[in-house]
């Protein structure tokens, strides 16, 4: 068996701290750092939600893969904004590294513009850790 992404305890703690500070403390409900195989690497939430994160990650990996394949068919490298808006809750996807995805679940108290700013900041900081 191969283990392509192995994180140390220290790395995971740094990532958790970044996600807590940049996103959860800013009003985001839930964040999942995951790989494209559908594994959950880090999951934090504000305590208001109780989502089934493993199923979410499995579906998000499939969804992200499908959307990337669509991008390739129409001649794009990738789409820069991946976002599903609901009445109450929304989901935002951001690529962190080749095989890593950051999923953010937030409600209407957080604007998309602000969220994208904070996600970009968090991604930048996570890249320094991994």
């Amino acid at each position: 068996m191969e283990f392509t992404i192995d994180f140390t305890k220290e790395q995971i703690e740094s990532i958790e701290e970044i996600l807590q500070k940049e996103l959860i403390d800013m009003g985001v409900q839930s964040v999942i750092l995951m790989d494209l195989a559908g594994n959950v690497i880090v999951n934090l939430d504000s305590g208001e939600t109780d989502h089934d994160v493993f199923s979410l990650a499995a579906l998000a990996a499939g969804n992200y893969g499908a959307v990337s394949a669509m991008a390739n068919i129409i001649g794009e490298q990738e789409f820069s904004l991946l976002f599903h808006k609901g009445e109450e809750e929304s989901i935002h996807f951001s690529k962190v590294a080749d095989d890593l995805l950051l999923l953010t679940i937030f409600n209407k108290n957080v604007s998309l513009g602000f969220l994208r700013l904070k996600v970009a900041e968090a991604v930048k900081r996570i890249k320094n850790v991994i």
Partner: peptide
């Protein structure tokens, strides 16, 4: 590629 989380002491295996 099984994923090991050393902090939660958890392993995810995909079959």
């Amino acid at each position: 590629m099984a994923l090991i989380n050393p902090k939660k002491r958890e392993v995810q295996v995909k079959i």
